[in-house]
Computed example of a mutant assay.
Amino acid sequence: MNNGPREVFSTLIHPGCSIPPEASAVHHITDRDVADKPALEAVWPQVLELVEGAVLVAHNAEFDRSMLPETGRPWLCSKRFAQHLWPDAPNFQNQTLRYWLGIDIDVGLPHRAMGDAVVTAHVFQRELAAYLARGYEDDPAALFNFVAGPVEVRTMPFGKHRGQLLEEVPRDYLNWVLENVQRLDADLEWSIRRVLGKSA
């Protein structure tokens, strides 16, 4: 795997609606900032040209992918990659991983897409290095399989046993979760079944 050439593209987009003040409080982008900016549809052909033949890497890729039109390109989630590689990290937020890994970079304004993308790129490079250092195959298909595999959930994320190690949660409660919680997170279901000794 190699880094290859790098091209940077960034633009504000007119969202087609008013920006809520709660959102502006996070990224400091206001309606005035985007008043004369293009709609997503206007720049999307350029985006597709830039990502032609690429693998798209995003932190929490499922969310980003749901917010964008289809690209026809494969996606890889750097958050999920980190969960596999470093289960003892403080948490798996992009900026937390940046400081936990000691990535010393200037990303400009916080909570802007370009800064977040730069952090994601650096985190991903560290992930690739750690993955290969552990002897995993230097092959895109093997990497995708690794990242897509189930991630072990160690503690109960909700309910009266929230924060308790799954191994210590009463078995009848774990069985109740499997039988009654709708749209149960796939990783949590796999982890509960593993604790219970059931086939996932």
Rank of each mutant, 00 (worst) to 15 (best):
L178D: 03
Y136K: 05
N175L: 14
S78K: 09
G163K: 12
E7V: 15
P150M: 09
A39E: 04
D31G: 04
P87S: 11
L48I: 01
E7L: 09
L76G: 05
R80V: 10
V147A: 06
L109H: 12
P20I: 05
I103G: 04
A130V: 02
T120I: 10
T11K: 00
R80T: 11
D64V: 14
V153F: 04
D187R: 02
G197E: 13
A25L: 13
R162Y: 02
I19Y: 03
R98M: 15
H14T: 00
K79D: 01
F9H: 11
V153T: 11
Q46I: 03
F81Y: 11
M1N: 06
R32T: 05
P69R: 10
A121M: 13
G159V: 07
R194Y: 04
A133T: 08
R162C: 14
S24V: 02
A39G: 13
F9M: 05
Y173P: 11
T155N: 12
E127I: 01
N94F: 00
H27N: 15
N2C: 00
I29P: 00
G135V: 06
Q182C: 00
D31A: 03
R194E: 14
Q95N: 12
P87K: 12
L143N: 04
R73C: 15
L143K: 08
L188V: 07
E137R: 15
C17Y: 02
N94E: 04
K79N: 03
E167P: 00
Y173H: 15
W100Y: 15
W86T: 06
A23E: 14
P5L: 08
S66K: 06
L196K: 13
G149V: 01
A121R: 15
G4N: 02
H161W: 15
L128G: 05
K198V: 09
V118L: 14
D64F: 04
V107P: 00
M1G: 13
R65H: 13
F146E: 01
S78M: 04
L76I: 10
W86R: 05
N145T: 10
E127S: 14
Q93D: 05
A35P: 00
N2Y: 02
E7M: 09
E70P: 03
L196E: 12
V118W: 02
I105F: 00
E137F: 07
D36N: 12
R6A: 12
N180F: 02
D185F: 04
E7C: 05
I19K: 02
S18T: 10
L143Y: 07
Y131N: 08
P45M: 07
W176K: 12
